[in-house]
Amino acid sequence: MINISFFIRQISLITLLTVGVSLEMIGGVIDLAFAAQLSASALVGVSLIAGGCPVGVGCIGILFFNFCLGFLKAVFLVKLRIPSIIFTLAMQVILSNFLLVTVDYTGIVIPGLQESYRGNLYTVVELIITVFCVAGAFFFLEKTYYGKYCRMLGEDLPLARENGVKCFGISVVVHLFSSFFFSISAAFLMFRTGSSNSALGATYLYQILTAVFLGGILPGTGKGRILGMASGALAVTLGVTFLTGSGYLYRFENILEGSIILVALALGIRKKN
């Protein structure tokens, strides 16, 4: 039971992050800053709780912080037309180093927080939240106009602009929606560790990108399905579990992630042609 519990918690987190990043990528944005965003927002939440606020306020703080960053992304990427990968790379460097300047790797630990949110009940709650969020993402992407316009933005932003699509508005909605997923993930991390520091969640960056590419979501195509995202998340979760248990992860993790992304790109291009 404990093993299944571990698995559910891990796949919940990776699925949420994969869906969040995938939505952005379908909209034409390659986000390298989401991991730093996780650390920063979790730190906001932990700081509020450590400062005496109720847990709910901490969670709202996480949400608000992520929404602000999501809005900022839309402004820089659509209004100022900065290439997404460069903007998010800069944002990641600024955020992670700013956190190091302020709280370093020591961070803030709240005794008792992780104990209070531990056990199979909370695992089930996390799973239910994840399922609802993924269902919401499916509805957004497949059943709403925002989803359709999001794909248009991802496929050809200049053309969408010329055709009168309100690119900035759509981009704001997409980034806010993704930020919602990042907020839930940050909250999960906060409860799981009862703490936050400048590196919390930072190691998920390339794992999630691998899951996204493995799930068939490619930048510049506007294509991607929820099933693909879930498949990618499942594959990465199981891969990490298996490789950790067999002791190969740290040696080959970077090589595997880079290779998988390249192979996924190659397969995606073959399909496109």
Binding site: T193, N197, G201, A202, T203, V240, S246, Y250
Partner: peptide, 22 residues
């Protein structure tokens, strides 16, 4: 087996769980 968590507590938690699984 050996793993590193790169100063990320979340990864440390995941690695501990996976070592139990392993």
């Amino acid at each position: 087996v050996s793993v590193s968590f790169d100063n990320d507590s979340a990864k440390a938690v995941t690695n501990i769980e996976n070592m139990v699984t392993g």
